[in-house]
């Protein structure tokens, strides 16, 4: 757990001081990617709780989810379909679902 938090902090510091900035035009895509990544991480957490954690699935899911989400939103933008909100809704719902499940497991373990 601690190494995960530590690397999160390292990443945060790197992001804060990185000399690159995402152009405003891509801010929307970036936020979708972020949400997808968050979803993957919570999904991984949940899998770990269920003791079904698979490293390959986790890693591949993390990146393909983010990239696919970005790709879909990008294509949707060009086709005039606002997939952005769909992605937000889908990922958001899943994050909350995963959180609920994680909570249940947590209480079953410790309560």
């Amino acid at each position: 757990m601690s190494y995960a938090l530590l690397s999160l902090a390292i990443g945060a510091v790197l992001g804060a001081f990185a000399p690159i900035a995402v152009p405003v035009a891509y801010a929307k895509l970036f936020s979708v990617a972020l949400l997808a990544s968050l979803d993957s991480v919570f999904g991984g957490f949940r899998a770990a709780m269920e003791e079904k954690f698979d490293n390959t699935i986790f890693i591949s899911g993390f990146f393909t989810n983010a990239l696919l989400a970005v790709f879909l939103v990008y294509v949707g933008d060009h086709l005039g379909i606002d997939l952005y909100y769909v992605a937000l809704l889908a990922f958001g719902l899943r994050i909350f679902q995963n959180l609920a499940i994680i909570r249940r497991y947590f209480f079953r373990k410790h309560g």
């Binding site: 999160l8 902090a9 970036f30 990544s37 991480v41 890693i59 993390f62």
Partner: peptide, 23 residues
């Protein structure tokens, strides 16, 4: 291996979070 991958993913996530914050 899983530890390494989780740390890596967490690092990327942290990076993205702060980037998003900056945006």
């Amino acid at each position: 291996r899983s530890q390494i991958s989780i740390s890596f993913v967490c690092m990327v996530l942290g990076f993205m979070l702060t980037m998003q914050f900056r945006i």
